[in-house]
Design a protein around this nucleic acid. Sequence first.
DNA 1: TTAGTAAAAAATGTATACAAAAATAGTTGT
DNA 2: ACAACTATTTTTGTATACATTTTTTACTAA
Lengths: 207, 207
Amino acid sequence: MDISHSIKEDILRNRLPRGVPLRQASLSTRYGVSRIPIRDALQALKSEGWLVLHGKAGVMIPDLNWKEAEDLYLMRAELECLLFGMAFDRIDKDDLVEARYFLEKLNQENLTLIYKGELNWLFHQALYRAAERPALQRMVETLNKQVVRYLGFQYGPLGYRNTSQSQHEKLLSLIELNDEKAALTFLRQHIENAGILLTEYLKELDV
Amino acid sequence: MDISHSIKEDILRNRLPRGVPLRQASLSTRYGVSRIPIRDALQALKSEGWLVLHGKAGVMIPDLNWKEAEDLYLMRAELECLLFGMAFDRIDKDDLVEARYFLEKLNQENLTLIYKGELNWLFHQALYRAAERPALQRMVETLNKQVVRYLGFQYGPLGYRNTSQSQHEKLLSLIELNDEKAALTFLRQHIENAGILLTEYLKELDV
DNA sequence: TTAGTAAAAAATGTATACAAAAATAGTTGT
DNA sequence: ACAACTATTTTTGTATACATTTTTTACTAA
């Protein structure tokens, strides 16, 4: 079992304190492993943006904030449209089948937030893979994985789930119609909408 | 002394073999530390794109290739212009002084490639900091640090140094003239030019 | 010869123990 | 009372030893 995954779950569920340094020793007892794998996990989470430095040594869980949310979605919009444009002509039936598969899974109830985020990414990834641009795709993947930190709002108070799903369906149908221009525009709006919805909500919360 | 820095230098100077798995034990003796800090460094380098997985366990130095170079510069162009646009109105005298400071340092001879890359980034960063967009800036920073892997070509066979420096000067003067539109266009071209030059060269080398 | 498999070797992953560094508390002087 | 410095404690960083996994090698059978 992967420790960093457990820590992510606990961060999302607010089971770990924000803003104060996480102590390797206490995490070590909490997850029942020695400090070595804890350190590995902390470093990984740090480079993924789930944790940030606190002082000279030590990490903490950063507060969520609208500026970061806005940035993440601005970047997603730019880079994913770029990638999608490179992929469009090469998307084949198998890719669409795979995309649909993940889309269906997202309709299930009782999924953990992390798993929902994973499925959402796998859906998009199915559409981008045809581009065969590993570097670009890797960056888009890290953005998608960062956004997961905000998923509690999207699937919670914002009730974004149904909107998102129907937009995903629409996107697939535009691809099947081979309407590249419309699909690209729609994808951009899909991402921008999600970003605006989230950002405005966070601004109201004043975070 | 930071091990990952030493490993980066050795990767750039081709002192470590590409394409074959790097062994923790041999790196351990090479750099005179135990395997623990070696593992830390490898993980960090992996998340920065300097190393990639080789098989189920083990990492290797990936080959440079035109596709990745093109992606990195495409992303730089999009994201840095976005960030620069957010910063432009708020750039103050101190920022420009700082930018000039790093620009001068870049004129020195006998700098290591990594240090040149560092200075180049610090120059750009001085212009972006005013935006106060940490998430976006962090992503732009990782892109700039990835590009360092290709710096051997830019400063070597491509002789890009003088072109780059004069473009940096030009950019500063456009900022001082407060011509936002021209500055933004110029920054984009500056990045795109570097990208095209590098990408075309790599294509000819067939990598 | 080749594919498959099992044993051996080698490599990575993890725990424990120790060293170095950072944070904290206490003390002293103003 | 407050700042600055020192001693103590806490925490992180690293080495060594061991466990587990992966890879390689050698062997057998089709």
